[in-house]
Computed example of a mutant assay.
Amino acid sequence: MELRVATFNIRNSSADDGNDSWPLRREATVAAVAALDAEVVGLQEVLPDQLAYLREALPAYDVVGAGRDDGDATGEHASVLVRRDAWRIESHETRWLSLEPERPGSVGWDAHLTRIATLARLRRRESGRAVGIANTHYDHAGETARIESSRLLGRWLAAEPGLPWIILGDLNATPESEPLRALTSEGWRQTLPADAGGTEHAFSGAEDGDRIDHILIGKGLTCRGARIACERFEGRLPSDHWPVVADLVLT
């Protein structure tokens, strides 16, 4: 069974981005998500106003995930978008990347900010096959926090071995870094080829920046192909990151 997934840091709407601010590029962001034609999309840095806009502009998707500040609506979300004609959401929850993963707003290790992961368990409407999605955004400053977040996430997913899991996210870490090695050493596989290019470009449009956005797959999944989608829409950059998209097969 085939499945297309994507991850995309859409850049929060509170940032002072001038000509690239959210009100000026939000249509391009929606166009970028739609162009991925993915059944599941993990988004990062989604603030409540952005979430409301995306829900209205992308009616084919159900959206899950809580705000990181209070476990409800406040703060950035690591939203999971699921195309409802293909998948049914059986359960989902938000957990905090910290030593207190059930406590909203908790900050882990040397992280500068509260960080979260949204876990969603999906079932294919047509075949009944199931898959798990973990969408996350690691801290930008705390190296220990990034490593420990990988270990924590790995433990959570290992506790549900009956599901083939997919990790989506902005890990603020490059492919050969220790946070990624903490996952790949446990059997997680990266989907992008080594020469795929970069994902972070700070609204420059560069394609050779750091690759910090990733899709990783576990047991029960293979990758037919993955790419970084470096596309503008009506001259607009949709974010300060490029999205990553992968075509997977449940074996």
Rank of each mutant, 00 (worst) to 15 (best):
E231H: 12
L43R: 12
D16Q: 13
A15H: 06
D17E: 11
V107F: 01
N135I: 02
D16V: 01
P59K: 00
R115I: 03
G197Q: 04
G75H: 04
A159H: 08
G187T: 04
A158E: 15
L119F: 13
H112T: 11
I167W: 02
E39G: 13
E45M: 05
A196G: 07
G105E: 05
W156V: 08
D213K: 03
A52I: 03
I217P: 11
D195E: 15
H112Q: 13
W242A: 15
N19D: 15
A31L: 07
L43M: 13
G218L: 05
N9M: 08
D49N: 13
R83H: 09
G142I: 01
R121M: 02
A73Q: 14
L237P: 07
L54W: 00
F8P: 12
A66R: 11
R121S: 10
A141Y: 03
L36Y: 07
T174W: 02
L54K: 05
S204W: 01
R103W: 00
P48G: 05
D210Y: 00
E76I: 02
E2C: 01
R103S: 11
E126R: 10
D240E: 09
R25G: 10
E102A: 12
E56A: 12
L99R: 13
A86I: 03
R55C: 06
R11K: 14
G187F: 01
S106F: 00
T184E: 13
Y138P: 08
R25M: 05
R224K: 08
T29Y: 04
E56T: 10
R95T: 03
G220I: 02
W109Q: 13
I228Q: 15
L43Q: 14
T118D: 05
L192N: 12
F8D: 15
A66K: 12
T118P: 11
D85I: 01
R224A: 10
K219S: 14
A31S: 15
H137Y: 04
Q44V: 04
G132V: 02
T251G: 15
N135G: 12
D85W: 00
A32N: 08
I10V: 14
D20V: 01
R211L: 08
R123V: 06
D37M: 03
R236C: 07
V30R: 01
G154Q: 09
E176K: 03
H77A: 12
D20G: 06
Q190A: 10
L183P: 04
L221S: 13
D170H: 05
D195N: 14
I215S: 10
A34Q: 14
V5W: 02
S14K: 07
A173W: 02
A196Q: 07
R115T: 06
R4A: 10
R95L: 13
S98P: 01
L122R: 06
A31M: 06
T94H: 00
I167S: 09
A57P: 12
Q44L: 03
P179I: 02
S79R: 04
P179A: 02
E160V: 04
V131A: 15
W242G: 15
I215H: 07
P164Q: 14
A66H: 09
N12R: 12
L122Q: 11
N172W: 00
D37K: 10
A158G: 11
E100A: 11
A226I: 03
G209E: 01
A120G: 10
R129P: 00
Y138Q: 14
A145Q: 10
W87F: 14
R95N: 05
V244S: 13
G218E: 08
Y53C: 09
G169M: 04
Q190D: 12
D70A: 10
